[in-house]
Design a protein around this nucleic acid. Structure first.
Length: 269
DNA sequence: CGGCATGTTTCGCC
DNA sequence: AGGCGAAACATGCC
């Protein structure tokens, strides 16, 4: 579930936390730096941002000035004030077990708001069955590439350079482009008419333009509709590849860059 | 039981 | 040195 689009949905959902003070923290210490809870308890949440697939909370207090980074891995999901903005797909059987919680942050309401009611549950809850997600402090995000949603052809061309890895591998590399995951890359390449296994240095200029345009146009549309699973290459189509929605020829399911890829040999060259 | 999963990190080989 | 690809990580589901 979590690609850049999901992180963006969670960013928007978490903005009401700005201005609150962290009163208590519980964390699964296997996925966080030592002493994280003590470090951030008492700090005010001063900002909520997203970089690529990472959600960032700015935290400030007399003794702390840091950025808390939430990485969701393959199966992480977020709840804010008891509300999950995205439902499961992979674990769609309604499973949401407390045992899978990895981080719980209780944060007080705005001190000066007389209408505010006390809250009992955690303000923020990171639930992640597979535990591939991570919580970090001051993560190094300097090398993250330009964000996919606003990607320009010029920037994409520069980032790809003369590299010979497959275009799919390159687009999945967060240092090349920020925010794309397996589903979005397949969707973008399908829309742009580029085969996933084409080497980066053999992607012509027109295709670069098409990929960047597909990122700028399709990703915001998918975001609007609910995230990475809302592309033309639907989860149903991915799991049982049928006919290409564009030209009606058979879709192919194969491994590219170690990831399951769905594409149309007819119009993706 | 075997295989597979929306993601990163690490290791070894050029 | 650095790009590249495969393996590893961890757990649940079909």
């Amino acid at each position: 579930m979590p690609e850049g689009l999901e992180a963006e949905i969670w960013r928007a959902a978490a903005t009401p936390l700005v201005g609150r003070t962290i009163t208590d923290v519980w964390v699964d210490e296997r996925i966080a730096p030592v002493g994280l809870a003590d470090t951030i308890t008492g700090a005010e949440i001063t900002s909520v941002d997203r970089v690529a697939k990472v959600l960032l909370l700015g935290l400030e207090s007399a003794s702390v000035d840091t950025m808390l980074g939430l990485h969701f891995g393959m199966t992480g999901r977020l709840e804010v004030d008891g509300d999950a903005p995205i439902d499961h797909l992979e674990y769609a059987s309604g499973a949401d077990r407390p045992a899978w919680d990895r981080l719980r942050i209780w944060a007080g309401i705005d001190r000066d708001d007389p209408r505010a009611e006390p809250r009992h549950g955690p303000a923020l809850r990171l639930n992640d069955p597979r535990r591939l997600g991570r919580v970090s402090l001051d993560a190094d995000l300097l090398h993250i590439g330009p964000d996919a949603m606003t990607l320009t052809a010029r920037a994409l061309k520069r980032q790809i350079g003369g590299r010979r890895a497959t275009i799919k591998t390159l687009l999945l590399d967060q240092e090349v482009v920020g925010g794309l995951g397996n589903l979005c890359v397949d969707e973008v390449l399908w829309a742009a008419g580029v085969a996933p296994h084409r080497p980066g240095d053999q992607v012509d200029s027109d295709s670069i333009v098409a990929i960047a345009r597909a990122c700028r146009q399709r990703l915001p549309a998918m975001l609007e509709r609910g995230g990475s699973t809302m592309g033309t290459l639907s989860p149903e189509l991915r799991s049982a590849p049928g006919m290409c929605p564009r030209d009606g020829s058979p879709l192919v399911r194969s491994k590219v860059g170690g990831r399951t890829s769905v594409w149309c040999p007819q119009h993706q060259k």
